[in-house]
Design a protein around this nucleic acid. Structure first.
Lengths: 131, 131
DNA sequence: CTAGGTGCTAGACCGAGGTCTAGGTCAACC
DNA sequence: GGTTGACCTAGACCTCGGTCTAGCACCTAG
């Protein structure tokens, strides 16, 4: 648990998000509590913030909408007592991710078949016509 | 290979797309050649069209953009001689899907950890604080 | 004859998630 | 003292993928 602090540019580099997007996420309430500011009004991110944002990126990568992340952030920011809700939210998302994986595997099969069929087609010199 | 024909409503039912979306897809060039029309200008889809659209749905489900599907459709519609290109396109998409699967698994791990950690937390009566 | 069902076009509209611009503050360096 | 670079806000803008509306045509059943 480092207590290092980071400027927005540094956070952008570390999370892979643009500074624009970081500010957007903040406005959208993804940040579980206010971001601290230095004496000039500049954002000061903690190591914890950076870690959280890294997780947000992963949530986004699996299609969790900003509003849902914001909801989770709100619960986390609220502190004790709502852990059951957070768990529920996470479980729901996990289920959606699992469903998504199913669908993707389904499609992957189609693609694999098509790729194989074109490979055969090309190797054999135009036998049959895939699609 | 049935040679049945389908109205747009029937196709919507079979593919799970709305009729609006079907028309949009056509405009966007997803259909590998013109859709036939009956004497009143109504679209007449072949069984092949329906199958193709079903595949389009799967491509979409894995994040293939409409423009890429359109590109593939164009190649298919063009006929012989570009099979290598189609294969390349499919391989590229497969790679993206595989990458996507990696990222999703990565995120899934995070979620599983968090779920487990909250389950422990709740079972033990607030020991430690996950997030 | 009328109503209901299905279809047509052109084009407006929408939500999500970013991305960018204008105009400004501040600190550090040459 | 000027320039550069990092940051600020408010708000416009953009893409993507749909979704919906208006206004019309046609067919069929009651």
């Amino acid at each position: 648990m480092t207590d290092r602090e980071y400027g927005i540019g540094e956070v952008a580099r570390r999370t892979g998000l643009s500074v624009h997007t970081l500010r957007l996420y903040e406005r959208a309430g993804l940040l579980a509590g206010e971001v601290r500011r230095d004496s000039h009004g500049r954002r000061v991110y903690t190591a914890w913030d950076v870690e959280w944002l890294t997780n947000c990126v992963k949530f986004r990568a699996t299609g969790m909408p900003l509003t849902t992340i914001a909801e989770l952030a709100r619960l986390v920011g609220e502190g004790n007592g709502n852990e059951a809700k957070r768990l529920e939210l996470l479980r729901e998302h996990r289920q959606r991710v699992l469903d998504q994986l199913d669908r993707i595997h389904d499609c992957l099969e189609l693609i694999n078949n098509k790729v194989a069929s074109y490979e055969r087609h090309l190797a054999a010199g135009a036998t049959g016509n895939p699609w």
